[in-house]
Design a protein around this nucleic acid. Sequence first.
DNA 1: TTTTGTGAACTAGTTCACAGCT
DNA 2: AGCTGTGAACTAGTTCACAAAA
Lengths: 227, 227
Amino acid sequence: MVALNLVNRPNKRRQAPDQVSELTTNRLSIYLRCLHELDANGVQTISSQALAEQFQLNAAQIRKDLAYFGEFGVRGVGYYVKELRRHLRQILGLDRKLRVAIVGAGNLGLALADYPGFRQEGFEIAALFDAAREKIGQHSRGGVPIHDIKELKRIARRERLDISVIAVPAPHAQLVVDQVVAAGIKGILNFSPGALHVPEDVKLKSVDLTVSLESLSFYLAQGEIDG
Amino acid sequence: MVALNLVNRPNKRRQAPDQVSELTTNRLSIYLRCLHELDANGVQTISSQALAEQFQLNAAQIRKDLAYFGEFGVRGVGYYVKELRRHLRQILGLDRKLRVAIVGAGNLGLALADYPGFRQEGFEIAALFDAAREKIGQHSRGGVPIHDIKELKRIARRERLDISVIAVPAPHAQLVVDQVVAAGIKGILNFSPGALHVPEDVKLKSVDLTVSLESLSFYLAQGEIDG
DNA sequence: TTTTGTGAACTAGTTCACAGCT
DNA sequence: AGCTGTGAACTAGTTCACAAAA
């Protein structure tokens, strides 16, 4: 019983539950990575228990996460690796290429443009953007072209950009986000520190390096007190 | 029960509660950033309500977070900006310089070494490490020297390194983490994808770019189904 | 009056434990 | 027998609401 949208939603939908928590979607991505490996190693089936042992996780957690989306397992057997992988890719929307733009061709932006973790199956870094005249027209080492930020809207349409990574200094971040939103991009991964505002239909995820470091610092400080 | 060192712990300690959640420590860092700004703008006092409005947060949440560590506010007034900032810095262990090493002098490692968010008050990027012969002896653009990873233990001691950032390809990550741990470093910020294991007394935080992107992809895919 | 600090109520997320399928 | 899928129990985290302080 799948998505049929035209009719009223049935109470229990399997394809898109009312609210899947971010914790769950993050874990789905982790499961998927593990399934890649298992498949590469020729493993055919895996139980939730065996999967849970790979990470610091409870088997019921994994079953619950998957159960939001369907019944993928076989009782007494576990999950077929290839099949579950296919399902997860579909659920995560990785069954097509997503086109990513990076705004900010500074050290970080350029590094991200060529970062293997970003050039992975399912994603494609299609463009870099910057405001600095001398950078425009250049390329990253890996060959991603740097465009004028003013061209964002036009190129977003032409290149069918899905996701934008924000790697500009904090003071410009909100302005850039506004431009990204205006260009119709609905997914943003932000590396600038500080709070940013987006409309409801845009999904913003932030990675705040300062917060991560300071939080680490807290634990170090505690460790010294507590022994 | 817990570590009792020399004396029994009083039931209610203010300096280091038994378990402060990571969510709380992350927020403390966010509050601190905001207090910097407020202070720079000459603001003297701030209420939890006003602070909460800056981010997507509830005022009681902020008061609770702070209350773990002491009574910093004044009823009817709010919090004195300078004073609270001083307290938060102390709580987060930022009242001294923390020395950071980055392992992996690839694109990402080099970018992080010169990233302003990392060169911030409280932190100092003291060294880069790599295994590639041709990189050793070089410097990042910002002047951070690149050492042989084999020297990690020696230099960690000499330079009194507190935190290590892991920016190496996934297959080497666990090996590098083991070396970092062996060098006596107790705080690790990891950018490699995949699960890593550390002893109990070492704090590991991971930023997984693939997971972030794939989680974004999920929301994009849902958006298209749900309308 | 204003705003904190905090128990109580609530909400979200995790784990348990077991019925039911293979 | 083995393992999933899931309600129930539990744990963690957030918000409410109000007494107490300035």
